[in-house]
Design a protein around this nucleic acid. Structure first.
Lengths: 341, 341
DNA sequence: CAATTCCTGATAGGCGTCTATCATCAACAT
DNA sequence: ATGTTGATGATAGACGCCTATCAGGAATTG
């Protein structure tokens, strides 16, 4: 059984190919009853336009922009690398991808960066701060017909078309369960460090973690969250403080970046491998610490997958084609030292 | 910068497009020095054929066949469903995918099934038994120019072009680490059940598990493996036996299928939630047991990803195009009740 | 009723590649 | 010199769709 073409549809509907094309691409006004006839023919023949041929014919460039945090965050660098890699691979599909680094922690800076993108792009992917100003900028982009996806950190009440990233409260709950089970039978304190409480992903992880921790593991005392702004020095200071303040600290969950600082603090205090430490994002540093045993578990979201998923979604939106949800689900990767890739 | 076309290459090399095509597709004899000139032009212009246009022009059908185990194994059913779903999605890319179910546990049956595929296909994906007879059949297919990938379970010394699946010894090691940590501070026996010791994946998981278990957790006594042939009743019987034989059994790792049987045995013995139970593959049953707490951890490989990866690899082989390894790595999914999708 | 406007048909040309055929031309063998 | 072979050029048509234009008929307006 061969696939139906536009010509078949035209024949079936008793109209010309030009008219079918007008219906399909809304190129000009067509009488409602004619539209109806064409659509019926499409349904009967189960016609699906050949996207490859369409792309070839349109010889259209897709222009996308990724807006990522600048700075030294290892995970974000990896994400940027993946964007660049995907960009060079996508050249052959006529996809141009720009990469823009900006201070994501500052709502004003981020928002105006987004606004400056103007209408140069068909789609934008952004690691976003959940802030009214940023939400406005995202909505403005979406309203002007640009496809917008949030990546890694979401802005749920905005008009973004899609969020590419893990379910963060689920990640937090998982961390809590692992922490609780690893520490089963023991009692003591568990520390929680976050980067920024304006980052949606951090809050949600914290929320999930606390939820499970409080309900399921009464033997463990959860200390109040400490905010680190993901600044390496500050993270280390916060961790060191925690360790000196609580010599019965037996667990530590870092929701944000800055893992090396915590590793350093743990090792300096001689508490490495004594405190169960769960971190996020697999980087060179966390990989090493995982192998040495200072980190027990790393929860990760695959940067490559996220970038490719974001691109697929943006392309689908640009083509007005549907996306396959099950394909775009980003999974929570749990890494032990035994399954590091 | 626009992409170079065949015409550009022809111009650059000072030959006709026909000659470039001859070089590219080996269509006819071309003088070595001419070949050299064309290849130089290709290099200089960094010419890459437009795969979309090529597919369109060739209007070639790709014919692939998936050979999966028949029977009631829930994971394999899910895999089959994913194959069917992918098949219907790939119609628009001119990819025809057949699905063949056979008794994979029987080397003879599987091998002759593979042989009967003849040359009707451009590529074959198979869940394979690691057996000389099967290896021969795989080699024969590969020798006759058909792309072969093994999926889920590998046949390492065969001529298969690629293995799509997780690193099973790594999965086994991860299971052991989680088991060891969940049971930290306690001592007792840990049971190990496998489906078939001719299935590569099962052996490797077992191997990885034992390796870590023996070295890292001397407090736990590992019982000898029991083979279940993945038969539901038998699995349940084996598990029940283990439980009655060892009332100090505190951990259980099932390397193969038949999870429902073990869940039933644990619940019948009133030992659910008392024994740390780690299983493979996320199915409806294991999902339920995970939520109820009878299963503590499920190690999974995403069926959808595997199928899509297998198809991508088969298509690349058929097109003689390279594959991007990092894209095709199948990850070990670790599911707790907190991150079930 | 003529002048517009709205719909529709017909068709050409292009996107980048593949396939196939025919024509050249040079080198070589007879 | 004639025929044969090998290498190359030229070119048309296809793949399925998009874009654009022109022509003509139908419906609407003044």
């Amino acid at each position: 059984m061969v696939r139906a073409t536009i010509e078949d549809v035209a024949l079936e509907a008793g109209v010309s190919v030009a008219t079918v094309d007008r219906v399909l691409n809304g190129r000009a006004a067509v009488r409602p009853q004619t539209v109806e006839r064409v659509e019926k023919a499409i349904r009967q023949l189960n016609y699906q336009p050949d996207r490859l041929a369409a792309r070839l014919a349109r010889s259209r460039e897709y222009r996308f922009c990724f807006v990522l945090p600048e700075g030294t965050n290892a995970y974000m660098s990896a994400l940027a690398d993946e964007v660049r890699a995907a960009a060079s691979r996508m050249v052959q599909e006529k996809v141009v991808i720009d990469l823009r680094l900006t201070d994501v922690f500052d709502a004003e800076t981020l928002a105006s960066a987004l606004e400056r993108l103007g209408s140069n792009y068909d789609g934008v992917a952004v690691v976003a701060l959940d802030h009214p100003r940023v939400r406005e900028a995202i909505n403005a982009l979406a309203d002007s017909g640009i496809a917008v996806v949030t990546i890694v950190s979401d802005v749920p009440n905005s008009k973004r078309h899609h969020y590419v990233g893990i379910d963060n409260s689920s990640a937090g709950r998982s961390a809590a369960t692992l922490m609780g089970r690893y520490l089963s039978g023991r009692s003591g304190k568990v520390g929680l460090i976050a980067g920024s409480l304006s980052l949606r992903d951090h809050i949600e992880r914290q929320f999930g973690f606390e939820q499970v921790m409080l309900h399921e593991y009464p033997n463990l005392t959860l200390l109040p969250v400490r905010e680190s702004r993901d600044d390496p020095k500050r993270v280390q200071a916060v961790a060191a403080q925690l360790l000196t303040d609580h010599d019965d600290l037996i667990g530590l969950y870092n929701v944000g970046a800055g893992t090396p600082g915590i590793v350093a603090a743990l090792e300096a205090a001689g508490r490495a491998r004594k405190v169960v430490y769960i971190a996020h994002e697999l980087t060179d540093e966390s990989r090493h610490a995982l192998i040495s045993g200072t980190i027990d578990i790393v929860i990760n979201q695959d940067a490559g997958h996220e970038v490719r998923s974001a691109i697929r979604v943006l392309m689908s939106k640009a083509d007005k084609a549907p996306i396959v949800n099950s394909m775009e689900r980003i999974r929570i990767d749990i890494y032990l030292r035994d399954n590091i890739p």
